[in-house]
């Protein structure tokens, strides 16, 4: 079988279609907000929230919840809001708050899973959650629909609040003086990114989520200049990298999450070189 016949053979399975659809949607959502997060120096908020989501998954498994999504979503959104509020507190700086919640949630999550989990393969469960080895290929139809709804919400929020997000991203002080509710829009961004993180855990696992947020934005910034062009390019890069990563991983038998991130890294260096040659970097 050649590569196309092999792909055609694999695509006879509905779960491969599910993986591709959800992968593309998650890549789309994460990259859309990635530019804002990178510019606002919030790159690591994704990492912190993903660890919180891991902790919430551990709690859900201890409570033996069959559907852990509602609990994980609520906890992650609450922590996103908390991080944002704490970030404004001068006693605990933003990066310290992210680090504290991130590491704390990871440790408590692992502790709970070890002490209370009934699973016979704790290290497997943890590894799968952290690195998302094949979880993207084990999605249900409900997951696909939820990802589609999430993508619609993120896209609608981005289009509807584009000008405000743009203003808050570049100059919070100026936005405040013009009467924009900066805290409200920061909150909106934090809540949306929390939603994206929870869904993105299926794609790359909680340790690699930041790559989905950061790499496409940074790659686009090597070549493009304006907020709009960087955002559009970032979305295209993210979707192409995720799609390529999924296809490579199912063809070569490599872990899905790390393959996507590897493709992101390669594309970053390609854009870095292109930027150098074009005189941008």
């Amino acid at each position: 079988m050649n590569i196309f016949e092999t792909l055609a053979f694999y695509f006879e399975n509905q779960f491969v279609w599910n993986a591709v659809i959800v992968g593309v949607l998650i890549a789309f959502c994460s990259s859309l907000l990635g530019v804002t997060l990178v510019l606002k120096r919030f790159s690591f908020i994704g990492d912190g929230l993903s660890h919180v989501a891991f902790g919430a998954i551990a709690i859900a498994s201890v409570l033996k919840l069959t559907n852990n999504m509602p609990l994980v979503l609520v906890v992650t959104v609450l922590c996103a809001v908390l991080l944002l509020r704490t970030g404004q507190n001068t006693k605990i700086k933003g990066d310290a708050a992210v680090a504290m919640i991130s590491v704390g949630a990871l440790a408590i999550g692992y502790l709970l899973m070890n002490v209370f989990s009934a699973s016979s393969n704790i290290s497997g469960d943890v590894c799968s959650t952290l690195f998302g080895s094949t979880s993207i290929l084990t999605l249900t139809e409900t997951d696909v629909w939820m990802s589609a709804i999430l993508a619609l919400i993120v896209l609608a929020a981005f289009i509807f609040f584009y000008n405000k997000i743009f203003a808050v991203t570049f100059d919070e002080s100026f936005s405040k003086t013009t009467g924009t509710h900066v805290e409200l829009y920061n909150l909106l961004i934090a809540v949306i990114i929390a939603l994206v993180i929870v869904f993105a855990m299926n794609l790359v696992g909680s340790l690699l989520i930041s790559a989905l947020v950061i790499f496409p934005a940074l790659s686009a910034m090597r070549v493009f200049k304006s907020f709009k062009s960087v955002t559009i390019c970032s979305v295209v890069i993210s979707v192409v990298c995720s799609l390529s990563g999924i296809l490579i991983s199912i063809l070569a038998g490599t872990p899905v999450g790390s393959t996507i991130v590897a493709v992101d890294i390669v594309v970053f260096f390609a854009f870095f070189l292109a930027g150098k040659i074009g005189g941008r970097s």
């Binding site: 079988m1 053979f9 694999y10 399975n13 779960f15 491969v16 094949t134 290929l137 084990t138 991983s249 199912i250 063809l251 070569a252 038998g253 490599t254 872990p255 899905v256």
Partner: peptide, 10 residues
Amino acid sequence: AMSSTMIYSK
């Protein structure tokens, strides 16, 4: 006839 990722998922 499948890769290891596909086998596991299947």
